[in-house]
Measured scan of single mutants.
Amino acid sequence: MPGGGPEMDDYMETLKDEEDALWENVECNRHMLSRYINPAKLTPYLRQCKVIDEQDEDEVLNAPMLPSKINRAGRLLDILHTKGQRGYVVFLESLEFYYPELYKLVTGKEPTRRFSTIVVEEGHEGLTHFLMNEVIKLQQQMKAKDLQRCELLARLRQLEDEKKQMTLTRVELLTFQERYYKMKEERDSYNDELVKVKDDNYNLAMRYAQLSEEKNMAVMRSRDLQLEIDQLKHRLNKMEEECKLERNQSLKLKNDIENRPKKEQVLELERENEMLKTKNQELQSIIQAGKRSLPDSDKAILDILEHDRKEALEDRQELVNRIYNLQEEARQAEELRDKYLEEKEDLELKCSTLGKDCEMYKHRMNTVMLQLEEVERERDQAFHSRDEAQTQYSQCLIEKDKYRKQIRELEEKNDEMRIEMVRREACIVNLESKLRRLSKDSNNLDQSLPRNLPVTIISQDFGDASPRTNGQEADDSSTSEESPEDSKYFLPYHPPQRRMNLKGIQLQRAKS
């Protein structure tokens, strides 16, 4: 015994090295194993092979420090690593049964499904019991997946119906949107047309105001020219009257000059006056001389005659003075006559000038009245044309509004008919989907599995289990394997941990 101590140590070291070499393959693929292994699927088989106990299973599945599946799978690998070579062998058998691809990844061999460990530990009855539990578990999982698949199909059909409904609603909204954009385009076109009409109206108003201003300026210029013409006519008439007055005065002077006595007659009258003065002096001298030589009687007679002569001279002087006064009065009367005649001529000139001015103003008033009548006639014609244009424009607008209203009513009726057609199509689609759903539900009910399987069917299934373990590994792997896509769409199922009653199965096998 003492001599065998070193050999035992060498043997233990060799086993430990082999164990480390075995687990080295697992550690190399630890990331892939932790990512894809579900500990809840492996722990029943590991407990059946007595590699882990209930406490280890509870620690792996329910520990609060292991929230994710990767953490739980890593903890399970750590626990199996502590179990040595047996933990490695049982772990590979569980991978061979549940995850053939991972088994091939770790060992590089094809899975054979021999279950040597569980046969050694529990015997064939334990293997049968384990396989029966796994089959029931798989059936329950398949039923749950079928239910989930039916629910998802129903949800899918519902979503398809909602999608069709949303599509129809979208078509309806597109119809309304198209109608909205069309009405918006019509409104924009009408606004552009309105702005264009306003611009045209403004341009016409500006043109009309400009023409009116030009016409008023032309009328004012015409009036100024007419006033200048009238003033020139007035000056012409005044000059004609002055010329006529000057002509009359010149004719009067000419007549006075023609009626003036001649120079010879004046000289002859002056000679006669001198001769008479000479004779008068001679007679006076004779009379003076006679007075001195005459007697007293003759002197008395001469005195009487002288007195008579003096009286006659006085009378004559009075007559001469009277004649002079009369001549002066006649001259003054002639001057007054000439003055009055001049005033008369001036008044006649003024009267004729005023008459011509009156005629001029009368003509001017007639011209202004004619212009006013023409302006009123043009204004009435413009008003009439404007009223006709406004009436025609309003009539066109009324007809346009009428046609637009008819078009809008027809478009609304068309839209309502399209919407009604879309709604009826939606109703038809809904009815078809309901009919299809009812038909599929009836087919699913016919094809669904019963909840409680008979014992004979279970025994028959387990009677055929042994050949399947040898020759149909691919079928078992397809039913027991969970793909990543299934984990996305289906909830994980945790079967209840219970042991099955095998009395009925044993009785059935005894009868057979």
Rank of each mutant, 00 (worst) to 15 (best):
G4W: 12
G4D: 11
G4Y: 10
G4E: 13
G4T: 12
G5V: 12
G5S: 11
G5M: 14
G5W: 11
G5I: 11
P6T: 14
P6M: 10
E7G: 12
E7Y: 13
M8P: 12
D9M: 13
D10I: 05
D10K: 10
Y11C: 08
E13K: 11
T14V: 11
T14K: 14
L15M: 10
L15Q: 09
K16D: 10
K16A: 10
K16L: 13
K16F: 07
D17N: 12
D17W: 08
E18L: 11
E18T: 11
E18S: 12
E19Q: 11
A21R: 12
A21L: 05
L22C: 06
L22E: 14
W23A: 00
W23C: 06
E24L: 00
E24D: 04
N25W: 01
E27S: 00
E27H: 03
E27Q: 05
E27V: 00
C28F: 00
C28E: 11
N29H: 07
N29L: 00
R30V: 00
R30I: 02
R30E: 02
R30P: 04
H31G: 03
H31P: 02
L33I: 07
L33H: 01
S34H: 02
R35F: 03
R35L: 04
Y36R: 07
I37M: 03
I37S: 01
I37L: 07
N38R: 03
N38V: 01
N38G: 00
P39C: 03
P39M: 01
A40Y: 06
A40S: 02
A40C: 08
A40E: 03
K41D: 05
K41R: 13
K41H: 15
L42N: 00
L42C: 04
L42A: 03
T43I: 08
P44Y: 09
Y45N: 07
Y45K: 09
Y45M: 12
Y45L: 11
L46Y: 13
L46E: 11
R47C: 08
R47E: 07
R47W: 05
Q48H: 08
Q48A: 09
C49F: 15
C49E: 15
C49M: 13
C49I: 08
K50T: 14
K50M: 11
V51K: 10
V51G: 07
V51A: 10
V51M: 09
V51H: 11
I52D: 08
D53K: 06
D53M: 05
D53W: 10
E54W: 03
E54V: 11
E54M: 13
Q55W: 11
Q55S: 10
D56I: 13
E57Y: 01
E57V: 10
D58S: 13
D58G: 09
D58E: 02
E59N: 07
V60D: 06
V60N: 01
V60R: 05
L61F: 13
L61D: 01
L61K: 02
N62T: 14
A63P: 02
A63Q: 05
P64K: 03
P64H: 12
L66C: 04
S68K: 05
S68W: 04
I70Y: 08
N71K: 04
R72Y: 05
R72F: 02
A73M: 04
A73Q: 02
G74R: 03
R75D: 01
R75M: 03
L76M: 14
L76W: 02
D78I: 03
D78S: 02
I79A: 02
I79G: 03
L80G: 07
H81T: 08
T82W: 02
T82C: 07
T82F: 04
K83W: 04
K83H: 06
G84C: 07
Q85K: 13
Q85F: 07
R86G: 11
G87L: 01
G87D: 00
G87M: 06
Y88V: 07
Y88W: 03
Y88M: 01
V89C: 09
V89G: 13
V89K: 05
F91A: 00
F91Q: 00
F91W: 00
E93L: 03
E93N: 06
S94W: 01
S94T: 02
S94F: 03
L95R: 01
L95F: 13
E96W: 02
F97H: 09
Y98P: 00
L102A: 03
L105E: 09
L105M: 00
V106R: 00
T107A: 04
T107S: 03
T107I: 03
G108A: 09
K109S: 07
K109V: 00
E110R: 01
P111H: 04
T112G: 14
F115Q: 15
S116Y: 06
I118E: 10
V119C: 15
V120L: 05
E121N: 14
E121A: 07
E122P: 15
E122G: 11
E122W: 05
E122T: 03
G123L: 15
H124V: 13
H124C: 15
E125S: 12
E125Y: 14
G126R: 15
L127Y: 13
L127Q: 08
L127T: 14
L127V: 14
L127A: 06
H129M: 07
H129N: 02
H129T: 14
H129C: 05
H129A: 11
H129L: 04
F130P: 01
F130Y: 14
F130E: 13
F130V: 15
L131N: 10
L131Y: 00
M132R: 05
N133G: 12
N133A: 05
N133E: 01
E134D: 10
E134C: 15
V135A: 02
V135R: 08
I136Y: 02
I136D: 14
I136S: 01
K137N: 11
K137Q: 10
K137I: 04
L138C: 10
L138I: 12
L138H: 06
Q139K: 14
Q140H: 09
Q140R: 11
Q140S: 12
Q140F: 05
Q141H: 13
Q141I: 12
M142Y: 14
M142N: 13
M142D: 08
M142K: 09
K143C: 06
K143L: 06
A144L: 08
A144N: 13
K145Q: 09
D146R: 05
D146T: 12
